[in-house]
C-alpha cells in the first residue's frame, strides 16, 4: 500500500509525517518530493496540501506543518490503534486516549481531515519504527493506511535513512525472497526477524565470523554486540578506517559509493537511480572486493561437498 514520490508530488493533498524530522534528516523531502512542489493535481503547491506532524517533541519540521500533534513517548501504537477505531466509527475509551498525550477531539479532527483528503499519505520514520513497539508500530500504520482506503485513496511510505538501504531490501527480496535477516546456513533461505536479525545474533554470540560492508556497527550497535564483533574474525569494507575497522581482523579500503564508485541506488520509494561519480578513487569498489572474496572462496573446497561439482566461477 505505497506509491512513488512522483505520485505524492502530483496527487497528495494530505500528508502525515510520523516520528520523523525531515527538515533536518531529509532536508529536500519537502521541497523536491512532497510538500511544496506544484503537481498535476496540486497546481498551487503548498497551498493545495495539508501537512500534519506527529512526533514526541517539537522539531524544526513542526514549523512546516499545519498541525503538530505531540504524542507521549512510546505511545505511538496506542495512538494509531485509537485512530483506526475512530476511522471505523467505533467507540474509544477517552481515558485510554488521554494516555497518548492527545485529547480525543484532536483525534476526531485528524480523522475528519484524513477522510476529507483526495489522496493521503503517511510518511513514517524511525521515531515510530524503532521505538517501543517497533515493527508492530509500522504494521499498525500500514493497517491504518489500508483501512483508510474504504473512504479515500491512502498510502504509507517509510522514510528510509541511509542512502541505499532500500536497495538492500530490494536486492535481498529478488535474490532470496526475503527483505532482510536471511539465513542461508542450510543452503536455502530462511527468514525470522528476532532470530536471524543482526543485533539478536551478535548479542547471543551466534556468529563466528562477520563481513561488514557499508556500515559502522562498531559505532552504532549495543555494546554486547560490539564486544562479540571484536571477539570473532570481523572483516570490514569501508572508504575510511572506522570504529568497526579498528576491532576487525581484516579491513579493506574501498571507493565511496556515488562519489567515486558507480552503480545503482534505490530511492526510498523503490525507484532505482544510476550513480554518476565525479571522482576516480585510488581504491577498488565494494563490488570488486566482494567479487574477489567470492572468487577466492570458490578456489577453496566448498563447505557443502556436493557443491564442489556444481560451482561455476
Amino acid at each position: 500500500m505505497t506509491c512513488t514520490l512522483g505520485e505524492v508530488k502530483n496527487r497528495a493533498d494530505f500528508m502525515i509525517y510520523w516520528g520523523g524530522n525531515p527538515a533536518e534528516c531529509h532536508p529536500r523531502h519537502f521541497t523536491k518530493y512532497s510538500l511544496t512542489q506544484k503537481g498535476k493535481f496540486t497546481p498551487k503547491g503548498r497551498k493545495d496540501r495539508t501537512m500534519v506532524l506527529v512526533d514526541i517533541r517539537e522539531t524544526p519540521s513542526a514549523k512546516a506543518a499545519d498541525v503538530f500533534l505531540q504524542v507521549r513517548p512510546g505511545k505511538d501504537f496506542e495512538l494509531v490503534t485509537a485512530l483506526r477505531a475512530i476511522v471505523k466509527g467505533q467507540r474509544v475509551n477517552e481515558a485510554a486516549v488521554a494516555e497518548t498525550g492527545l485529547p480525543l477531539e484532536k483525534l476526531h479532527e485528524l480523522v475528519a481531515m484524513m477522510k476529507a483528503a483526495r489522496f493521503g499519505i503517511i510518511f513514517f520514520g524511525m521515531g515510530l519504527s524503532m521505538t517501543r513497539g517497533k515493527h508492530m508500530n509500522s504494521a499498525a500504520v500500514l493497517m491504518l493506511a489500508a483501512e483508510m482506503n474504504a473512504f479515500t485513496k491512502f498510502v504509507a511510505m517509510p522514510m528510509r535513512g541511509h542512502g541505499n538501504v532500500t536497495g538492500a531490501d530490494v536486492v535481498m527480496r529478488y535474490t532470496t525472497g526475503y527483505p532482510f535477516g536471511v539465513n542461508l546456513c542450510r543452503g536455502y533461505p530462511r527468514f525470522n526477524p528476532g532470530e536471524f536479525s543482526t543485533v539478536d545474533l551478535l548479542v547471543r554470540g551466534d556468529n563466528d565470523a562477520c563481513l561488514v560492508l557499508g556500515a559502522d556497527p562498531g559505532a552504532t550497535m549495543p555494546q554486547p554486540a560490539i564486544n562479540h564483533l571484536a571477539r570473532i574474525p570481523t572483516i570490514t569494507l569501508d572508504p575510511k578506517v572506522t570504529h568497526t575497522s579498528r576491532l576487525s581482523r581484516v579491513h579493506i579500503t574501498t571507493a565511496v559509493t556515488g562519489v567515486s564508485a558507480p552503480g545503482t541506488a534505490y530511492r526510498m520509494d523503490e525507484i532505482p537511480l544510476p550513480l554518476r561519480p565525479a571522482l576516480k578513487s585510488p581504491y577498488p569498489t565494494d563490488e570488486e572486493v566482494v567479487r574477489r572474496i567470492r572468487e577466492a572462496v570458490m578456489r577453496r573446497p566448498a563447505w557443502l561437498p556436493e557443491r564442489n561439482a556444481e560451482m561455476v566461477v
Binding site: 541505499n164 538492500a168 563466528d208 562477520c210 556500515a215 565494494d286
Partner: peptide, 12 residues
C-alpha cells in the same frame, strides 16, 4: 555461521 551485515551504503 558467518554474518554478512550492512549493505546500506553500497551499490545494488
Amino acid at each position: 555461521m558467518p554474518l554478512v551485515y550492512g549493505m546500506s551504503n553500497i551499490t545494488c
